[in-house]
Design a protein around this nucleic acid. Structure first.
Length: 934
DNA sequence: GACATCACG
DNA sequence: GACGTACGTGATGTCC
């Protein structure tokens, strides 16, 4: 056959590669390569399907030419026609993404042509090839079950559903669409397609569409003569939505005349090269398949070492030391293109951005580093300024030898947004936010900080320096050595490029090395699900919340600040008068001396630095003795509110957005909780009346409302579930007041005789249990004798013995394994549990608390991950998270629906991963400001 | 930079 | 039997 021109007698097979991939992915469990944990299930299934396909190619239907056609990642020309095209399609699963390039490799290993084209979908390539083959007089079989391809059937073109082994010809198409292949697009244009988000004509499905097309002959005829339609609603739709219908047709119409950079002749069937094919299969560690194909090809099967993972790691080629690393500066497009080519070859890249500051809402991009191989990284300087770091009046001109920013971004954008290329970073949320401000939506991503958090939570911090020293035995170049410290510190754009390159490139290099080490461990440590469902997908969600921010009214804060100042001044003179001397009220040391030495008040205890303690609890006790401590308490409250909130918050209002943009630290708390900083919006006052008014400054944008949805008693509910306390479960099921119920049980008081004082005690005990109760702690909290507190606890354990078992079991588990777990499988390490003395006591209480606090944290993370999609059809925005509460902003008209949708997501957040015996309940509030909404 | 204090869940 | 003690955070001001 070789050298024959495609024509009569030839038979072209066109395989829809994406359909193969997704079918393979869903048909197989999430297999990973044994030596390094690389996800490999879809590739395995894909190879099996290719093998079966090749094997079945005998007889009259055997092809002379064949190609596997893939969708090129990214957007197609249809997105230019309609930006919503395929917009509701969920992104590819994370563990599938790294497998996309491998399926291309597999195709080539089978020596089958493998084609994809940027800006076009696989369907268009298939259409163009099918038309070319048909016009040349050949026969075509499209191996796919995608109905969008049915318009191509006829004239020697057929489809084959490989799963059902069913051929589809013109009759088959007529069965499916009610019209012949030539009118399929007309029907699709009318019926639309919810999967691809093609709008079509509302209210018209395939049946009706076929009826209309058959009646009028064509879509154009139908639209021109729409007035003749009898049904008024249908007539109106067709007239009013004409433009939308015509646009839909252009979306579903496949392009048969694409300019291809290859010809049909190049698709001729070829035998695989045994060495290449078996090499690929054994590299993937497919034992069965390698052997089967080796037998078929009459070759000796290459041996695949039966290595356990840790041994395999030792087998990996030793990464070069950091001292011999090759770090280059990229100064022109040609060199950058070489790096981009390398990235595309690998299918992943470690990325790091250098910027002018730490606030990603304000900092500007200075340069980008890339790394695909340990020890080889590049730095692309973009906006470094001329003039050296020592020059105080450094020029604002750009330094020589840098690519134009726009050009570099334009070249990198397709790579950074490519679904098939994994972008690896350390704290990628930061870099992603910088990129968004430069018009690039980085995805998909992996994050070494989050990998470490999932793997090592509780063992150590997850910053780059810690990780590098710990896992790579390498101390990174300190940023201070480039920027200096304090007042004389410079910004990164003032660092000479020659100095910047080794620092920046090293960060990307470290990130890549960490990723190579951590990623396979997810599977071994059984935290893949935690990482994939609770950590990785949260990154874009948080990034969006942070970028959106919450509106804060400066005037409200400013007025309150002035009021606080006046009150403080009055209190201060009163305090000075009472003490008989002028001193700094804000100095605990000076206050302590006044109270306990000069005035000889009782209860003077010295802390570890030899100073008297003057904490609020001590001053409260002293308040019965003297007026002064009470005044100091008042002053302190105002001082706190003013400095931390009314004043500091104003500094955080973004000059352009007028909103406050906090930053969430996903790895902030060992338990799985997040932390908020710059500013911390998770500790805005609420407990005191005076403080709560601060929340009035957090307002909804014009025409909008703030919503607050919070989990009711989530930690106690989780405790009831994990400790299996039937009485508690029942109380939650019946909707009873849980603290009153507890009080009734342990103090033997009937519910109708309950007093607020008894209930308060029970509430303290309930919280105490969650925190790993001790007689001393409860006694201090309730200000009762220690013996009495211990009595309460004893009675509590008597009534709810399950609690004691839970505590003992949890501590024992921690001692045995070195960690405890949440219901979702998050591991929180407790290295101190083996310590002696008070440290062990701390660790025990932390171990008791962690699964409860951590499970609650996991629950709300699940809700947050699912929220954007759930509210996508609403003009609602999720703004803040405060541990068990989510804050939304939504136009007035959509309040009720938003509450109902968000509540459903939150209450169902544990499902289906975890079944809870106790239902989760969410309370909702609304208002013009946060005080009203809460 | 350590410490004390206090804001939140 | 003594140890110290509720769990998890971040921001601020003082003082060295």
């Amino acid at each position: 056959m070789s050298g024959t021109q495609f024509g009569k007698g030839c038979h072209l097979h066109l395989i829809d590669g994406s359909a193969f991939i997704f079918r393979a992915y869903h048909a197989l469990p999430p297999l990973t390569r044994k030596s390094d944990g690389l996800p490999i299930g879809a590739v395995a299934g894909f190879c099996n399907m290719l093998q079966r396909y090749v094997e079945g190619n005998t007889g009259p239907d055997a092809p002379t030419h064949v190609a596997v056609i893939f969708d090129h990642s990214g957007k197609s020309f249809r997105n230019d026609l309609y930006d919503q095209y395929k917009a509701n399609r969920p992104p590819a699963p994370e563990d599938l993404v790294p497998q996309f390039p491998l399926t291309r490799e597999a195709t080539r290993a089978f020596n089958i042509a493998c084609k994809e084209t940027e800006g076009f979908e696989a369907d268009d390539i298939i259409a163009t090839l099918a038309c070319q083959a048909r016009d040349a007089g050949g026969r075509v079989t499209i191996i796919s079950s995608d109905k969008d391809l049915m318009q191509l059937v006829g004239d020697g073109v057929e489809m084959l559903d490989a799963m059902k082994n069913k051929r589809i010809d013109s009759d088959g198409v007529r069965e499916k669409f009610g019209v012949g292949p030539d009118r399929v697009v007309d029907v699709q244009a009318l019926a639309g397609d919810s999967v691809d988000n093609v709008p079509g004509a509302p209210g018209i499905g395939i049946k009706t569409a076929a009826l209309l097309i058959n009646e009028f002959g064509s879509l154009e005829e139908l639209l021109d003569r729409a007035e003749e339609i009898k049904q008024p609603k249908r007539r109106q739709t067709l007239i009013e939505k004409r433009e939308q219908i015509e646009m839909s047709k252009t979306l579903v119409q496949l392009d048969c005349e694409m300019a291809l950079d290859f010809t049909l002749d190049e698709l001729e069937v070829r035998d695989p090269d045994p060495e290449v094919l078996l090499g690929f299969l054994s590299e993937m560690e497919f034992r069965t398949l390698t052997k089967r194909l080796a037998d078929q090809l009459g070759q000796e099967a290459p041996t695949i070492p039966e290595t356990a993972a840790p041994a395999a790691q030792a087998d990996l080629p030793e990464a070069p030391g950091f001292d011999v690393a090759e770090y280059t500066t990229v100064r022109d497009a040609e060199t950058l293109q070489q790096w981009i080519d390398r990235i595309r070859e690998h299918g992943y890249v470690a990325v790091d951005t250098e910027t002018t500051g730490l606030d990603e809402m304000i900092a500007d991009l200075v340069g980008i580093c890339l790394c695909v191989t340990p020890g080889q990284a590049c730095y692309v300087p973009l906006t470094h300024k001329a003039g050296n770091s020592g020059d105080l009046f450094g020029s604002d001109d750009l330094a020589e030898g840098q690519m134009p920013l726009e050009q570099a971004l334009e070249m990198l954008k397709p790579v950074l947004e490519d679904d098939a290329i994994l972008k690896i970073g350390q704290n990628m949320k930061y870099d992603a936010k910088i990129f968004v401000r430069n018009g690039i939506d980085v995805a998909p991503i992996d994050d070494t900080m989050l990998l470490s958090y999932a793997l090592h939570g509780g063992l150590h911090g997850h910053g780059m320096d810690t990780l590098s020293e710990r896992y790579l035995d390498h101390q990174p170049i300190p940023i201070k050595s480039l920027l200096g410290t304090g007042k004389s510190a410079i910004t990164f754009d003032r660092v000479p490029i020659d100095e910047a390159t080794p620092y920046a490139a090293e960060d990307a290099d470290i990130t890549l090395r960490l990723w190579q080490q951590f990623k396979p461990q997810l599977h071994q440590k059984q935290v893949t699900t935690v990482y994939e469902t609770l950590e990785r997908p949260l990154v874009p969600v948080l990034a969006q919340m942070e970028r959106h921010g919450i509106k804060v009214d400066r005037d409200t804060l400013s007025r309150m600040s002035n009021a606080f100042s006046q009150k403080m001044a009055a209190l201060e003179s009163e305090i000075h008068e009472l003490s008989g001397e002028s001193f700094n009220v804000g100095s605990p040391a000076q206050l302590g001396e006044i109270l306990f030495d000069k005035m000889s008040l009782p209860g003077g205890k010295r802390g570890k630095n030899g100073k008297y303690s003057t904490g609020a609890d001590i001053l409260e006790d002293l308040a019965t003795e003297h007026e002064l401590p009470a005044r100091v308490l008042d002053w302190r409250q105002l001082s706190k509110l003013k400095s931390t909130y009314t004043d500091a918050l104003q500094e955080h209002i973004h000059p352009e957005t007028g909103r406050v943009h906090t930053s969430y630290l996903q790895t902030g708390a060992n338990t799985g909780r997040m932390a908020s900083s710059d500013p911390n919006l998770q500790n805005i006052p609420v407990r005191s009346e005076e403080g709560r008014r601060i929340r009035e400054a957090f307002v909804a944008d014009e025409g909008n409302v703030l919503l607050s949805l919070d989990y009711s008693q989530i930690e106690l509910r989780i405790l009831a579930h994990v400790a299996e306390i039937d009485a508690l479960k029942q109380a939650f099921a019946d909707g009873h007041d849980i603290h009153a119920m507890t009080a009734s049980e342990i103090f033997d008081v009937p519910l109708d005789e309950m007093t607020s004082e008894i209930r308060r005690k029970a509430k303290a005990i309930n919280f105490g249990v969650i925190y790993g109760i001790s007689g001393f702690g409860l006694a201090r909290n309730l200000r009762i004798p220690r013996g009495e507190a211990q009595g309460f606890i004893d009675r509590y354990f008597e009534r709810f013995p399950g609690i004691r078992h839970y505590m003992d079991d949890t501590v024992n588990f921690a001692k045995e394994h070195g960690y405890v777990q949440t219901l979702f499988g998050r591991k929180i390490h407790t290295p101190e549990i083996a310590a002696k003395g008070p440290r062990a006591s701390f660790a025990k209480r932390a171990a008791i608390n962690a699964p409860i606090q951590g499970t609650a944290a996991d629950v709300i993370r699940r809700a947050m991950v699912r929220m954007p999609e759930a509210i996508a059809h609403l003009p609602a925005r999720m703004l803040l998270q405060v541990h068990d509460e989510l804050i939304f902003e939504v136009p007035e008209g959509h309040v009720d629906e938003t509450i109902s949708v968000a509540r459903k997501i939150m209450e169902g957040a544990a499902d289906p991963a975890v079944h809870m015996d106790v239902k989760l309940v969410v309370d909702a509030g609304r208002g013009q400001n946060w005080a009203e909404a809460h």
